[in-house]
Design a protein around this nucleic acid. Structure first.
Lengths: 193, 193
DNA sequence: ATTATCTATAGATCTATAGATAATGC
DNA sequence: ATTATCTATAGATCTATAGATAATGC
């Protein structure tokens, strides 16, 4: 029954990874510890050897998801800095992202849940938001001559807010055409030709 | 124990009103039927005389909250059409709204929950989104000469998306200064002097 | 000997229902 | 007589824990 320390560490990571996916798909209360552990190929009781509580796992799952999300942005910036903004925005405001919340933006999928049921996760959201604003500020087009540093940060914040709001709205409506229109409208607004 | 039909109808409305507030504050799974009924001054068992299930109440609570939200916008437009946009945006992107989700925007507070646990509520979100886009389109400034009807609708959608995303982000972070900065940045972006 | 995992279960909570109660409405 | 509400509870589910098990690590 017992596994090596190395394997135990891998199991722990797998639990966090599965939780980061399932919390985004089903919400904090939408998935139980038993099913999370089943998703990781383990049994219910083993959970508490790895984590003190379900909420502790939520905190780690948020950190994990936020880091993965940031890593994706950094990879796009590193591979082609000139076209990073359309790559990030286009990927974010896609029907694929809308329909796969489990691997998508943590703010859109877990932000509301984290704010109200898991205050311990909020520092991670704070740090991630700061980094996302900084990355966006770097890849924004030069814009008007009045583009002060302050103005660029403002624009970076507004850009990310529009992305998150578009995703929340696109997922909340029942009409496929309207949902796609929301994604496209915000994309057009953020990426003028 | 029994009350008049009139009183029973009022009790039903009160349950919906309390639910619309508590679902926004605590989420669908964050409040139980017993506590919802206690909030309405009734006992647990009486609930099922009014509603077939908790999810049915969620649907009505979403409709109620969305209608109230739309009514607030319409009132602002009716009282002063010229300054309706700054009134709507300023009210929405306030710390007061951020700190009182129970009476605030249903999309920001319940959109994610409704999308995943209460598909029956999605038609209400769809209709409300359409009406909010239409109202915003009417109060947007005339803008550039290339302001076609299509372009104006796009801008209305992007405006509401930015508002919703700003609220979700402002509530998810732990840092009061950053939270206020998010609200102010989007406000400045949507309401250029 | 230590410990990662498993089986089993305690204790709490939640939705929904059954049956009793008492005031309304015909 | 009807019915809106109340009391009480069934049945399911969920978090967390206790104790057993068996493989690792010294």
């Amino acid at each position: 029954m017992k596994v090596s320390r190395e394997q135990a560490a891998l199991n722990r990571e797998r639990i966090v990874d599965v939780a980061a996916r399932l919390f985004r798909e089903k919400g904090y209360d939408g998935i139980g510890v038993a099913d999370l552990m089943k998703g990781a190929g383990l049994t219910h009781g083993g959970f508490y050897g790895h984590f003190a509580s379900k909420e502790d796992l939520m905190i780690e799952a948020c950190q994990h998801a936020l880091n993965q999300s940031l890593e994706g942005w950094r990879a796009k910036i590193a591979s082609d800095p000139q076209h990073a903004l359309p790559a990030i925005v286009g990927n974010y405001l896609s029907t694929r992202h809308r329909d796969q919340p489990g691997g998508g933006c943590p703010a859109a999928a877990m932000g509301v849940d984290a704010a109200r049921m898991s205050p311990g996760a909020r520092p991670a959201f704070t740090q991630a938001a700061q980094q996302q604003f900084a990355l966006l500020q770097d890849v924004l087009p030069d814009g008007a001559p009045d583009g002060t540093q302050e103005r660029r940060r403002q624009q970076a914040i507004a850009t990310f807010a529009a992305m998150v709001g578009a995703m929340v709205l696109a997922r909340s409506v029942d009409d496929e055409a309207l949902s796609a229109e929301i994604l496209d409208a915000v994309k057009a607004q953020l990426l003028p030709d």
